[in-house]
Amino acid sequence: MMIEINLLPGARKKGKSAGGGISLGSLSALAAGIRDPWLIGAAASVVVSVAAVGLLFSAQSARATELGTRVEKAVRDSTRYAKVLSARHKLTAERDSVMRQLQIIRTIDDNRYNWAHILDEVSRALPAYTWLTVMEQTTKTPLPPGMDSTETTQAPKAAKEKKGKDTDEKAPADTITVHPPLGFRIVGQTVDIQALTLFMRQLESSPFVQKVSLSKSEIVIVEGKDVTQFELHAEYEVPPPGVVRTTPLVVPVR
């Protein structure tokens, strides 16, 4: 057994102080690293970034939930309103159909006596020693009420264009002319030129005839006598209210 004796004074303290110096140095180095402002800033930025990401995630989640609820409500409202709009469009189409049928009936009823009025007024205005040889319509005969004049000529083109359009697009409503223009020509003969002037004046004063004009006048020989042959052009005029009185037709039913 060997016993060592330290004969140098202060050697034990120096050893202890050396061991303690290493411990204090490491602690001071760690303290110096923590006090570094760049390291503190980096740590703080990491903490702030994590907190911001968490807040943004929470806000976006709440926003997504709110938007999902609103979308579901909008879909329900759209379904309900679609049914309401479909019923409204159906009722509007039925109303337009009824109004169109009434308009067609009105057109037929208002125009069926036009020629009767014209013939009556011409007969009243015809003076003595004057007779007519020709009386005919000069304007184009209108199509039956409810038919579009461009329907027959543009039907193929319209059908092709309609295929490219949206089915929900509303087509423009066609119109019905209640009183289509009606022009006529009168050819007659007279033995007195003053009778022709009187005839034109009386026709022009009629509430059913307008725009009376003399197109041609010449002397012809009829049965060995000189007579004046004339040609007049005029148009039918819609009379003002009160001239034509209508009464309902009552038919007794047995």
Rank of each mutant, 00 (worst) to 15 (best):
A32N: 13
A32C: 03
K83V: 14
A51E: 08
R63F: 06
R63A: 13
T69V: 10
W38F: 11
L56Y: 02
I22R: 12
E72S: 07
I40K: 08
A29I: 13
I34L: 07
P37D: 01
K73D: 14
E66N: 04
D77R: 01
A64T: 12
R63N: 06
A59M: 05
R70H: 11
S28Y: 09
A64L: 13
T69R: 04
P37G: 00
S61I: 09
L56G: 03
L67R: 02
I40P: 01
L24R: 15
L30W: 08
A32S: 09
S26Q: 11
L27N: 04
D77M: 13
A29L: 14
S49Q: 08
V46T: 06
S23H: 08
V47F: 01
V53Q: 02
R70G: 01
A59E: 07
A64V: 15
A42I: 11
R80I: 02
F57W: 08
E66K: 01
D36V: 01
G68A: 06
E72D: 12
K83G: 09
E72C: 03
I40L: 13
L67P: 02
P37A: 02
V50F: 11
A31N: 06
A52N: 10
T79H: 12
I34N: 09
K83F: 08
A82P: 00
L85Y: 15
E72Q: 12
A62F: 09
